[in-house]
Simulated scan of single mutants.
Amino acid sequence: MSEPVSFTPRPRAARRHAPNFDAENFLRELDVITHRVERVAATPVEVFSANCPEYDSACMVIIRLAAFLEREEYASYMDALSSSEKRALRTTRNIAAHSGYQSMDDQLLWTAVTRNVPDMIARLRAAASRG
């Protein structure tokens, strides 16, 4: 009987290139977020719940937008958002990422993603375009 083969991790690959944090990349990410917003908006609020895939999309909208707040290279763009919007993004992201869906108000999340986020994205696009 032969010995079972043990797991052997492969060597870590060298980083191919440093990420580029220019306005073009920022705008591309806003496009991805916008597609998620559209997916959520196509779901009636009455059926929007943690049981539907669009709920995960809504959480990713918040998580990705909040991630921009943590990047120093995007700080000038994020000045387009009010301090209360930034605080709401951080708080909602923390609930989605750490507390779980049972702590989330489904209707409030749907409204934030479909009503508030598109306006924030428009202002962020304008800020990035001005450079």
Rank of each mutant, 00 (worst) to 15 (best):
P53T: 03
E85G: 11
R36Y: 06
S99I: 01
M120N: 15
L27R: 13
E38A: 15
R123W: 05
L30K: 12
N51P: 00
V61G: 06
N94S: 12
S49T: 08
R71C: 09
R28K: 13
T114I: 12
V113G: 05
A75P: 04
N116S: 14
S76M: 08
Q102D: 04
I95G: 01
L65H: 06
D31M: 14
Q102E: 03
T111Y: 04
G100S: 02
L65K: 09
A42W: 00
E85I: 05
S82K: 05
E38T: 12
A58G: 04
T92N: 11
C59D: 01
A112F: 14
R123Q: 13
N94L: 03
A67T: 09
R115N: 15
T34W: 09
S83E: 11
L108H: 03
L109E: 00
A58W: 01
R39Q: 11
A88P: 04
D31G: 12
D105A: 07
T43L: 08
M104K: 03
E38M: 11
L30D: 05
R93Y: 06
L69C: 13
Q102T: 03
R93L: 03
I63R: 01
Q107V: 08
V61C: 08
I63C: 07
Y74E: 09
V40G: 07
L124Q: 08
N116V: 13
S99W: 01
R71D: 11
E70S: 14
V32A: 12
W110C: 02
Y101F: 05
C59T: 03
R36L: 13
S82L: 10
G100K: 01
T34Q: 15
T43S: 04
P44H: 05
P44D: 07
L109T: 03
L108V: 02
E70Y: 06
I63V: 10
H98M: 00
I121H: 06
I33K: 08
C52A: 07
S99E: 06
D105C: 00
T92I: 13
G100D: 00
R28H: 10
S76A: 15
D79R: 15
